[in-house]
Protein backbone atom coordinates (compact mmCIF):
# COMPACT_ATOMS: atom_id res chain seq x y z
CA UNK A 1 0.00 0.00 0.00
CA UNK A 2 1.27 3.42 -0.90
CA UNK A 3 0.07 4.79 2.44
CA UNK A 4 2.86 2.89 4.15
CA UNK A 5 5.69 4.12 1.93
CA UNK A 6 8.12 6.37 3.75
CA UNK A 7 6.94 9.95 3.04
CA UNK A 8 10.36 11.30 2.08
CA UNK A 9 10.98 8.51 -0.41
CA UNK A 10 7.48 8.97 -1.72
CA UNK A 11 8.08 12.68 -2.25
CA UNK A 12 11.28 11.95 -4.19
CA UNK A 13 9.56 9.22 -6.17
CA UNK A 14 6.87 11.67 -7.19
CA UNK A 15 9.06 14.71 -7.75
CA UNK A 16 11.75 13.24 -10.03
CA UNK A 17 9.38 11.75 -12.64
CA UNK A 18 7.50 15.03 -12.52
CA UNK A 19 10.59 16.89 -13.63
CA UNK A 20 11.79 14.28 -16.11
CA UNK A 21 8.40 14.22 -17.77
CA UNK A 22 8.76 17.87 -18.74
CA UNK A 23 11.18 16.96 -21.53
CA UNK A 24 8.58 15.12 -23.60
CA UNK A 25 6.46 17.00 -26.14
CA UNK A 26 4.80 14.01 -27.80
CA UNK A 27 1.56 12.29 -26.91
CA UNK A 28 2.63 8.73 -26.25
CA UNK A 29 5.14 9.24 -23.42
CA UNK A 30 2.85 11.09 -20.99
CA UNK A 31 -0.06 8.84 -22.01
CA UNK A 32 1.82 5.65 -21.12
CA UNK A 33 3.02 7.10 -17.85
CA UNK A 34 -0.48 8.30 -17.01
CA UNK A 35 -1.83 4.79 -17.50
CA UNK A 36 0.81 3.48 -15.11
CA UNK A 37 -0.07 6.13 -12.53
CA UNK A 38 -3.77 5.36 -12.74
CA UNK A 39 -3.10 1.67 -12.22
CA UNK A 40 -0.98 2.56 -9.22
CA UNK A 41 -3.65 4.86 -7.82
CA UNK A 42 -6.51 2.43 -8.15
CA UNK A 43 -4.85 -0.84 -7.22
CA UNK A 44 -2.15 0.09 -4.75
CA UNK A 45 -3.37 3.18 -2.92
CA UNK A 46 -6.57 2.66 -1.00
CA UNK A 47 -8.00 6.01 -2.05
CA UNK A 48 -11.80 6.07 -2.27
CA UNK A 49 -12.41 6.72 -5.97
CA UNK A 50 -15.21 9.19 -5.27
CA UNK A 51 -12.88 11.36 -3.24
CA UNK A 52 -10.23 11.05 -5.93
CA UNK A 53 -12.65 12.12 -8.66
CA UNK A 54 -13.74 15.05 -6.53
CA UNK A 55 -10.21 16.42 -6.77
CA UNK A 56 -9.34 15.07 -10.19
CA UNK A 57 -12.28 16.29 -12.25
CA UNK A 58 -12.06 20.04 -11.61
CA UNK A 59 -8.32 19.89 -12.07
CA UNK A 60 -8.54 18.04 -15.36
CA UNK A 61 -10.83 20.71 -16.74
CA UNK A 62 -7.95 23.03 -16.05
CA UNK A 63 -5.69 20.67 -18.01
CA UNK A 64 -8.06 20.82 -20.97
CA UNK A 65 -7.81 24.59 -20.80
CA UNK A 66 -4.04 24.33 -21.03
CA UNK A 67 -4.32 22.14 -24.11
CA UNK A 68 -6.72 24.50 -25.81
CA UNK A 69 -4.59 27.51 -25.05
CA UNK A 70 -1.41 25.91 -26.32
CA UNK A 71 -3.14 24.84 -29.47
CA UNK A 72 -4.17 28.40 -30.29
CA UNK A 73 -0.86 29.99 -29.48
CA UNK A 74 1.58 27.42 -30.78
CA UNK A 75 5.11 28.54 -31.56
CA UNK A 76 6.00 28.42 -35.26
CA UNK A 77 8.45 25.57 -34.86
CA UNK A 78 5.61 23.37 -33.67
CA UNK A 79 3.07 24.52 -36.28
CA UNK A 80 3.74 21.65 -38.62
CA UNK A 81 1.41 19.54 -40.70
CA UNK A 82 -1.86 20.44 -42.40
CA UNK A 83 -4.30 22.99 -41.04
CA UNK A 84 -7.08 21.11 -39.26
CA UNK A 85 -9.57 23.86 -38.51
CA UNK A 86 -9.93 27.57 -37.90
CA UNK A 87 -11.19 29.28 -34.78
CA UNK A 88 -11.76 33.03 -34.94
CA UNK A 89 -8.45 34.21 -36.37
CA UNK A 90 -6.45 31.17 -35.17
CA UNK A 91 -5.29 28.31 -37.36
CA UNK A 92 -4.86 24.99 -35.66
CA UNK A 93 -2.47 22.59 -37.38
CA UNK A 94 -1.86 18.92 -36.72
CA UNK A 95 1.44 19.84 -35.03
CA UNK A 96 -0.15 22.29 -32.64
CA UNK A 97 -2.93 19.83 -31.83
CA UNK A 98 -0.28 17.31 -30.90
CA UNK A 99 1.60 19.70 -28.62
CA UNK A 100 -1.64 20.77 -27.00
CA UNK A 101 -2.72 17.24 -26.22
CA UNK A 102 0.76 16.38 -24.99
CA UNK A 103 0.77 19.28 -22.54
CA UNK A 104 -2.70 18.35 -21.36
CA UNK A 105 -1.60 14.78 -20.71
CA UNK A 106 1.43 16.09 -18.88
CA UNK A 107 -0.85 18.17 -16.64
CA UNK A 108 -2.95 15.10 -15.96
CA UNK A 109 0.20 13.22 -14.96
CA UNK A 110 1.16 16.03 -12.60
CA UNK A 111 -2.30 16.02 -11.07
CA UNK A 112 -2.32 12.27 -10.63
CA UNK A 113 1.14 12.32 -9.09
CA UNK A 114 0.11 15.11 -6.78
CA UNK A 115 -3.02 13.31 -5.62
CA UNK A 116 -1.07 10.09 -5.22
CA UNK A 117 1.13 11.89 -2.74
CA UNK A 118 -1.34 14.22 -1.07
CA UNK A 119 -4.11 11.70 -0.52
CA UNK A 120 -1.84 9.01 0.94
CA UNK A 121 0.45 11.10 3.15
CA UNK A 122 -0.03 12.47 6.64
CA UNK A 123 1.64 15.91 6.70
CA UNK A 124 2.92 15.38 10.24
CA UNK A 125 4.58 12.12 9.27
CA UNK A 126 6.10 13.80 6.24
CA UNK A 127 7.71 16.46 8.40
CA UNK A 128 8.85 13.91 10.96
CA UNK A 129 10.34 11.85 8.19
CA UNK A 130 12.22 14.88 6.88
CA UNK A 131 13.66 15.30 10.37
CA UNK A 132 14.46 11.67 10.94
CA UNK A 133 15.70 10.71 7.47
CA UNK A 134 16.93 13.94 5.89
CA UNK A 135 18.21 15.34 9.21
CA UNK A 136 16.25 18.55 8.99
CA UNK A 137 16.82 20.25 12.34
CA UNK A 138 14.16 19.68 15.01
CA UNK A 139 13.84 23.41 15.51
CA UNK A 140 12.75 23.87 11.91
CA UNK A 141 10.69 20.69 11.79
CA UNK A 142 8.70 21.44 14.91
CA UNK A 143 8.50 25.12 14.04
CA UNK A 144 6.87 24.20 10.75
CA UNK A 145 4.67 21.58 12.36
CA UNK A 146 3.48 24.17 14.85
CA UNK A 147 2.52 26.32 11.87
CA UNK A 148 0.61 23.42 10.34
CA UNK A 149 -1.24 23.00 13.58
CA UNK A 150 -3.22 26.07 12.55
CA UNK A 151 -4.57 24.47 9.41
CA UNK A 152 -7.37 22.44 11.02
CA UNK A 153 -8.18 25.26 13.41
CA UNK A 154 -8.65 28.05 10.89
CA UNK A 155 -12.25 27.17 10.42
CA UNK A 156 -12.88 27.26 14.15
CA UNK A 157 -11.05 30.57 14.36
CA UNK A 158 -13.18 32.01 11.61
CA UNK A 159 -16.31 30.82 13.38
CA UNK A 160 -15.10 32.44 16.60
CA UNK A 161 -14.44 35.78 14.95
CA UNK A 162 -17.81 35.60 13.28
CA UNK A 163 -19.45 34.82 16.62
CA UNK A 164 -17.63 37.71 18.29
CA UNK A 165 -18.86 40.07 15.59
CA UNK A 166 -22.36 38.71 15.94
CA UNK A 167 -22.40 39.10 19.69
CA UNK A 168 -20.95 42.57 19.53
CA UNK A 169 -23.67 43.62 17.12
CA UNK A 170 -21.55 44.28 14.05
CA UNK A 171 -24.11 44.63 11.32
CA UNK A 172 -24.37 42.59 8.19
CA UNK A 173 -22.61 44.06 5.20
CA UNK A 174 -24.88 45.41 2.50
CA UNK A 175 -23.24 47.24 -0.39
CA UNK A 176 -20.00 46.40 -2.14
CA UNK A 177 -18.07 48.96 -0.12
CA UNK A 178 -19.32 47.57 3.17
CA UNK A 179 -18.50 44.07 2.03
CA UNK A 180 -14.95 45.13 1.33
CA UNK A 181 -14.75 46.75 4.78
CA UNK A 182 -16.11 43.55 6.18
CA UNK A 183 -13.44 41.46 4.49
CA UNK A 184 -10.86 43.64 6.11
CA UNK A 185 -12.59 43.34 9.45
CA UNK A 186 -12.31 39.59 9.19
CA UNK A 187 -9.04 39.11 7.37
CA UNK A 188 -6.80 41.35 9.44
CA UNK A 189 -8.01 40.07 12.85
CA UNK A 190 -7.80 36.51 11.58
CA UNK A 191 -4.19 37.05 10.58
CA UNK A 192 -3.44 39.04 13.72
CA UNK A 193 -4.88 36.32 15.93
CA UNK A 194 -2.88 33.72 14.08
CA UNK A 195 0.30 35.70 14.61
CA UNK A 196 -0.49 36.01 18.29
CA UNK A 197 -1.10 32.28 18.47
CA UNK A 198 2.13 31.59 16.63
CA UNK A 199 4.05 33.58 19.18
CA UNK A 200 2.35 31.79 22.03
CA UNK A 201 2.88 28.37 20.57
CA UNK A 202 6.58 29.12 20.36
CA UNK A 203 6.57 30.09 24.03
CA UNK A 204 4.52 27.01 24.91
CA UNK A 205 7.00 24.76 23.14
CA UNK A 206 9.87 26.22 25.06
CA UNK A 207 7.95 25.95 28.29
CA UNK A 208 7.71 22.23 27.67
CA UNK A 209 11.46 21.92 27.52
CA UNK A 210 11.90 22.07 23.76
CA UNK A 211 15.44 23.20 23.08
CA UNK A 212 15.67 22.57 19.35
CA UNK A 213 18.77 20.40 19.65
CA UNK A 214 19.08 17.01 18.03
CA UNK A 215 19.22 15.00 21.20
CA UNK A 216 15.66 13.77 21.40
CA UNK A 217 13.64 10.60 20.98
CA UNK A 218 10.71 10.02 18.68
CA UNK A 219 7.24 8.88 19.59
CA UNK A 220 6.44 8.23 15.95
CA UNK A 221 9.58 6.61 14.54
CA UNK A 222 9.76 6.50 10.75
CA UNK A 223 12.08 4.15 8.89
CA UNK A 224 13.08 3.32 5.33
CA UNK A 225 12.87 -0.29 4.25
CA UNK A 226 13.44 -2.28 1.06
CA UNK A 227 9.82 -1.76 0.06
CA UNK A 228 10.38 1.99 -0.12
CA UNK A 229 13.40 1.67 -2.41
CA UNK A 230 11.44 -0.72 -4.62
CA UNK A 231 8.67 1.84 -4.93
CA UNK A 232 11.13 4.52 -5.99
CA UNK A 233 12.80 2.19 -8.48
CA UNK A 234 9.40 1.20 -9.85
CA UNK A 235 8.43 4.80 -10.54
CA UNK A 236 11.68 5.58 -12.34
CA UNK A 237 11.59 2.33 -14.31
CA UNK A 238 8.03 3.04 -15.43
CA UNK A 239 8.97 6.46 -16.74
CA UNK A 240 12.05 5.09 -18.52
CA UNK A 241 9.88 2.44 -20.10
CA UNK A 242 7.39 5.06 -21.28
CA UNK A 243 10.18 7.03 -22.96
CA UNK A 244 11.65 3.87 -24.47
CA UNK A 245 8.37 2.59 -25.90
CA UNK A 246 7.54 5.98 -27.32
CA UNK A 247 10.96 6.06 -28.98
CA UNK A 248 10.56 2.55 -30.35
CA UNK A 249 7.18 3.41 -31.80
CA UNK A 250 8.69 6.48 -33.38
CA UNK A 251 6.61 9.07 -31.56
CA UNK A 252 9.11 10.50 -29.12
CA UNK A 253 9.61 14.21 -29.38
CA UNK A 254 11.82 16.09 -26.94
CA UNK A 255 11.99 19.75 -26.02
CA UNK A 256 13.43 21.99 -28.71
CA UNK A 257 13.24 19.34 -31.43
Amino acid sequence: MIQTINPTIKAVAVLIPGILLSFAFDIVTPLLFLVYLLVLTFFFAAIPWKKWLLFFLPLSIFAMGVAWMTMLYTDESYQTGPVLFQFLWFEVTLGSLQVGVSLALRSLCFITLSLLFALTTDPTKFMLSLMQQVKLSPKITYGILAGYRFLPTFQTELVLIKQAHQIRGVQRAKGFKQKWQHYKQYAIPLLANSIRKAERVAVAMESKGFTGDRHRTFYHALTISLKDWLFLAGMLAALALAYYLSYQLGYLRLIGQ
Binding site: L145, F150, I195, A198, V201, V203
Partner: peptide, 28 residues
Protein backbone atom coordinates in the same frame (compact mmCIF):
# COMPACT_ATOMS: atom_id res chain seq x y z
CA UNK B 1 19.55 29.51 9.86
CA UNK B 2 21.00 29.66 13.33
CA UNK B 3 19.90 33.19 13.89
CA UNK B 4 16.30 32.15 13.40
CA UNK B 5 14.41 32.01 16.66
CA UNK B 6 11.74 29.42 17.21
CA UNK B 7 9.09 32.11 17.14
CA UNK B 8 10.36 33.33 13.77
CA UNK B 9 10.06 29.84 12.35
CA UNK B 10 6.58 29.29 13.72
CA UNK B 11 5.45 32.65 12.40
CA UNK B 12 6.83 32.18 8.92
CA UNK B 13 5.41 28.70 8.82
CA UNK B 14 2.02 29.95 9.93
CA UNK B 15 2.11 32.65 7.25
CA UNK B 16 3.12 30.01 4.74
CA UNK B 17 0.13 27.90 5.68
CA UNK B 18 -2.33 30.80 5.54
CA UNK B 19 -1.10 32.03 2.22
CA UNK B 20 -0.87 28.50 0.85
CA UNK B 21 -4.64 28.42 1.28
CA UNK B 22 -5.04 31.83 -0.30
CA UNK B 23 -2.86 30.74 -3.22
CA UNK B 24 -5.14 27.80 -3.83
CA UNK B 25 -8.16 30.06 -3.86
CA UNK B 26 -6.48 32.26 -6.45
CA UNK B 27 -6.30 29.41 -8.92
CA UNK B 28 -10.05 29.85 -9.04
Amino acid sequence: MNQWKLKDIVLLSMLGVVFGLIYLAFFG
